[in-house]
């Protein structure tokens, strides 16, 4: 009977806010839409819009005589990336990013492994904060610290002198490519600072993947006669690989796009980030700057695609 249904169902809520609540409860899709609209508008218009406009510019070219942008579709700007002086910049940056990533993995692994397997209680916290504080502390201050360390009159030279090893430092600096008149203006310096600044990003993903490795798996490997080196090679490393790849996404991408570290500590030869900065600033060649910035996007796209196939995103 109709009287039963009338009383068994609660009356709708009263007042504007009550009615609005009922409306949202019955139409969750509209609530979802309302919640998503502001962030999507912000990210979609401001971020993706700008990004798209930038990509579009890379298909324009600059008029050599007037210096104005020629708004006609062309691939000429991309062709300029292949001329030796520009291609060297790309190659140099990619090689540096690969080396920094490999070295970061080597340094990060023991820290992550100790934190995941052996650190307990208080030490777990020490390791966690010990990684988080350098990771989050100021980027420029970290670079500044290395400017102090690598300076000719700085602590590293002092240390080498105290250990009577100055000849070693001088021998290293006299090497081609990696050397220079001082550590703070050599590739070696750039390399060290890149590792210092980006390596912490590698530790947490490796630690996350190692924490999922059961301890008895390592013991089983040892019981079955595996030496520590074999256990590492055939058990630990394959299981940690997704974490290493996940961490390498950060170290690789961040090194690829950085323009401040090589500007402050390094030789005068450019990296991709610096080339973008110089092209859009002093040179005023926005199309070439845009084409240069497409390079890291494409490389990262490929990298992420490979990482996804290796299952690295589960380790993030």
């Amino acid at each position: 009977m109709s009287t039963v249904t009338d009383t068994s169902i609660l009356a709708g809520r009263q007042g504007p806010s009550g009615r609005l609540s009922d409306f949202f409860w019955r139409n969750p899709k509209i609530l979802l839409l309302l919640m998503l609209t502001p962030p999507l508008l912000w990210l979609g218009i401001i971020y993706l819009g700008s990004l798209f406009a930038l990509l579009l510019q890379s298909f324009f070219s600059i008029d050599d005589f007037s210096g104005l942008i020629n708004y006609e579709f062309t691939l000429a700007t991309y062709r300029q990336l292949l001329i030796p002086s520009n291609f060297d910049i790309i190659l140099r940056t990619v090689v540096m990013a690969v080396l920094v990533t490999l070295a970061s993995a080597v340094i990060a692994f023991p820290i992550a492994y100790y934190a995941a397997r052996y650190a307990k209680g208080k030490w777990k916290v020490v390791f966690y904060l010990g990684v988080m504080l350098p990771l989050w502390s100021s980027y420029l201050v970290k670079i500044y610290a290395w400017k102090l360390i690598l300076a000719k009159e700085g602590i590293l030279t002092w240390l080498f002198a105290k250990l009577h090893l100055l000849w070693l430092l001088d021998a290293w600096l006299s090497l081609p490519v990696v050397g220079g008149s001082s550590l703070s203006i050599s590739y070696t310096g750039t390399f060290i600072v890149f590792i210092y600044v980006w390596m912490p990003f590698m530790i947490l993903p490796i630690q996350a993947s190692l924490e999922r490795v059961p301890g008895n798996l390592i013991e089983a490997s040892a019981d079955l006669g595996g030496t520590p080196a074999q256990t590492f090679r055939f058990v630990l490393f394959p299981l940690a690989l997704p974490g290493i790849i996940a961490g390498s996404i950060f170290t690789f991408s961040l090194t690829l796009g950085d323009y401040i570290i090589p500007q402050i500590i390094g030789s005068s030869r450019l990296f991709i980030g610096q080339a973008v900065y110089a092209q859009q600033g002093t040179a005023g060649n926005i199309p070439l700057a845009a084409a240069f910035s497409v390079v890291p996007i494409v490389i990262m796209g490929l990298y992420l695609w490979m990482a996804k196939r290796q299952g690295a995103f589960d380790a993030l």
């Binding site: 998503l36 990210l43 700008s50 930038l54 950085d258 973008v276 859009q280 910035s293």
Partner: peptide, 27 residues
Amino acid sequence: TISLLVILPIALPGIITGIALRSAFSF
């Protein structure tokens, strides 16, 4: 896609975000 969109500004190198915003502002 939304998760990706949120993470993108920090996943791509900062210089790309920077130059994209700058050219959009001038546009």
